[in-house]
Design a protein around this nucleic acid. Structure first.
Lengths: 206, 206
DNA sequence: ATTTACGGAATGAACATTCATTCACCATCA
DNA sequence: TGATGGTGAATGAATGTTCATTCCGTAAAT
């Protein structure tokens, strides 16, 4: 809590708080939330168990911290510098490309965020972190529908769930070995998703 | 092992083996695989813990039994009586409708099958059960592509992963409370998925 | 010298699994 | 018909293990 917080670590490793979160992410992604014990997380982080409990109140608090940190990294990776209020086809392609690089460069983070068993652990603050990503996306879809870019057939939340699910499904299939994805495959999947949510030629925009 | 096996239970409940599997499915779906202890499963099934171990070698064997049973129920629910070798748009609609009734009528089964943490438990026999569903679907897509019904842009496995992921994403969003799905919503989602995988008007079929 | 950070053995709770015992049912015999 | 004995299913308290968390001795920092 003092000024030393930033003074020394320049020559040292990342601060313990950060190291523990990253280590926890890796172990959680591999073994699941219930499936990982706390001591292995400490070991992966290179700290003692007691140290971990100095930084986090317990396993549940750690899970929430990992969740928020990871969700925020995804959010920034996806949205930083984009003007969602003027959706276009190239913007859609950019979003897809960013999702792809995230899933490719941070596979543990991507997998962790898609785990089911979060929701029994997450507290209010973590839940609100979800909204930070969903609300801008929802607004983008609404504007896209108003401007005739996206189909108005589906309500925005449904379009997002469909698109997101398709993306997750494709990468999940690759992770489980049902599939290998070339760059070409990803472009074709992207275009297919676009067809699913884009306005159709025959659509009317009264 | 004698003739009494079938003599009396006509007036009693389902055989214990079956009751345990169904109970396990419910508890697993709610608390996850690592998250559920064995005694609560026995309690849910209305049998003693020891009885459960008479029927299954252990927790892992039980998980495999539940997985195979559930996957097979899904497979039969989806494919029974359908002629996948002659894909049409109505056949696609039927598949979607069957998926929907499965997800609606057996939500625990649907949720259980989408859990991540299976794969560290599943044995060879369980894994091959997966194929029993994927192979026919894959063949259907291949034929659909050959006959000009489905787009040939994506390889069959990719099309399946995309479609399946979209469906799962929509129902997962509903289960987590991000969405409520009317019958109308489901039809629109179905049509959007169709657009994603169907042959486009401009496609050539040489 | 005092405070703060650290590590890892120690602790008690919860877990998966076992096993000695009970119980229900049927065949045999009086 | 009623009593006796045999058989295997059913049970849940007991067992050893694993887990989340604590605690205390030591090291670093101020």
């Amino acid at each position: 809590m003092n000024q030393a917080h930033f003074a020394s670590p320049a020559l040292k490793e990342a601060p313990k708080h950060e190291r523990i979160i990253q280590a926890a992410l890796r172990v959680f992604a591999e073994h699941g939330l219930h499936g990982t014990a706390v001591p292995p997380i400490a070991a992966e982080a290179g700290v003692g168990v007691g140290t971990l409990y100095r930084y986090f109140d317990g396993k549940e608090a750690l899970i929430n911290a990992v969740f928020r940190d990871t969700k925020q990294r995804l959010q920034e990776h996806l949205l930083d510098g984009l003007d969602l209020m003027h959706p276009t086809r190239p913007l859609f392609n950019t979003l897809w490309a960013r999702l792809t690089t995230f899933a490719r460069q941070q596979p543990e983070a991507f997998q962790f965020l898609e785990m089911q068993d979060h929701h029994s652990y997450l507290n209010a603050e973590s839940r609100s972190q979800e909204q930070a990503l969903l609300i801008p996306l929802g607004m983008m879809v609404i504007i896209g529908q108003r401007t005739g870019l996206l189909s108005e057939r589906m309500k925005p939340d449904l379009a997002i769930a469909l698109f997101w699910g398709a993306f997750v499904g494709v990468f999940k299939a690759e992770r489980l070995g049902y599939l290998t994805l070339t760059d070409d495959d990803l472009e074709r999947a992207r275009d297919a998703c676009w067809l699913a949510i884009a306005a159709q030629p025959g659509d009317t925009t009264p």
